[in-house]
C-alpha cells in the first residue's frame, strides 16, 4: 500500500506539490489525471527520490515504511518502480547487461540470491515477447536507436522483469500507438495481484480503456481536486479540466 499524506514538494524553490494526500491500497490500480503543470511528474520523481525534488512537508509510506528518507536505489530495493516519461538512452551499456545488473542489485539488497544467467535469459525473452521488442533491439546499447514507442516498451519490459511492489507509471502512454497502448494494458494486467499497486499518471482516458483503474484522481495545482471511479475519466474526456482548475 502506498500512503501519501499532506505532501509538499518544491523544485528550485517553487512549490509544485501542495498538500497532496492519496492512498493506493495493495492490489489496486489508481490513475492520476491532470492538466499540464499540475505536478504529475513532480509527484513521480519525488516518490522515486530524485535529489532536486525537495520534500518540504508531509509523509509517504510504502507498505508501512516511510520512503522519504531513503535513497533512490533503496526505494527501488523496497519495490518502488518508476516508469519514466522520457526514458534515457545510455550508449555503451547493453540492454541485457543493464537489466540483469539492476535486477541483481535489487535482489542483493533484499537478501535474495542473484538470478543465474540462464534463468535471466529465459525470463527476459519471455517478457520481451510480452512487450513486443524484438531480440535484435535487445542486443543494442540501452535505448540507443530505439523509437519513442520502443523506449516505452523497454520501460514495460523492466517493470515486468522487476515485478515491483508498487509501480508509478509516468505518462507511459505518451507517444504510443493503439497497439502499444494495448501492450501496456496487457503488462499491467499480467502483473496485477493482491500485493501489488499501480499509480498510472496520464493525460488521456484512452490508456484507461486498457488498464481499467479502480480509482481516478484529478490533480490540479499540486493537490487532488477530485477522486472517483473510472467514470471520472470519461467525464473528463467530455468536459475537460476547466471545471476543476477554476475551482482549485
Amino acid at each position: 500500500m502506498l500512503k501519501i499524506d499532506n505532501l509538499h514538494v518544491s523544485v528550485g524553490g517553487a512549490e509544485i506539490i501542495r498538500g497532496l494526500t492519496l492512498v493506493v491500497p495493495a492490489g489496486e490500480v489508481h490513475a492520476i489525471m491532470g492538466p499540464n503543470g499540475s505536478g504529475k511528474s513532480t509527484l513521480s520523481f519525488a516518490l522515486a527520490g530524485r535529489e532536486t525534488y525537495d520534500v518540504t512537508a508531509g509523509s509517504a509510506t510504502l507498505n508501512g515504511e516511510s520512503i522519504l528518507g531513503l535513497k533512490p536505489h533503496q526505494r527501488a530495493a523496497r519495490g518502488l518502480f518508476l516508469s519514466f516519461q522520457h526514458p534515457m538512452e545510455i550508449p555503451g551499456v547493453p540492454v541485457m547487461n543493464f537489466v540483469r545488473t539492476a535486477l541483481n542489485a535489487q535482489r542483493k539488497a533484499s537478501g535474495e540470491a542473484e538470478m543465474s544467467a540462464a534463468e535471466f535469459l529465459k525470463a527476459f525473452r519471455e517478457k520481451a515477447r510480452l512487450v513486443g521488442l524484438d531480440e535484435e533491439k535487445l542486443k543494442r546499447p540501452f535505448n540507443v536507436g530505439f523509437s519513442g514507442g520502443e523506449k516505452k516498451r523497454m520501460e514495460m519490459l523492466q517493470m515486468a522483469m522487476f515485478e515491483p511492489a508498487f509501480a508509478v507509471m509516468d505518462e507511459t502512454d505518451s507517444g504510443l500507438d493503439i497497439d502499444a497502448l494495448k501492450m501496456v494494458g496487457d503488462v499491467v494486467t499480467s502483473l496485477r495481484g493482491p500485493r501489488r499497486g499501480f499509480l498510472v499518471i496520464t493525460h488521456y482516458q484512452r490508456l484507461l480503456d486498457h488498464i481499467r483503474p479502480d480509482r481516478v484522481h484529478i490533480l490540479v495545482r499540486g493537490r487532488i481536486a477530485k477522486s472517483g471511479g473510472p467514470e471520472l475519466a470519461l467525464e473528463l474526456e467530455r468536459s475537460g479540466y476547466e471545471q476543476f482548475t477554476a475551482a482549485a
Binding site: 522515486a48 527520490g49 530524485r50 535529489e51 535513497k71 533512490p72 536505489h73 526505494r75 527501488a76 530495493a77 518502480f81 518508476l82 519514466f84 526514458p87 534515457m88 545510455i90 543493464f98 545488473t101 539492476a102 535486477l103 542489485a105 535489487q106 539488497a109 523492466q158 522487476f162
Partner: peptide, 14 residues
C-alpha cells in the same frame, strides 16, 4: 545526472 538517477531508480547504488 538524469542517467545517474535512472540507474539508481533501477536499484543500482550510487
Amino acid at each position: 545526472a538524469d542517467a545517474l538517477f535512472y540507474f539508481q531508480q533501477r536499484g543500482l547504488p550510487p
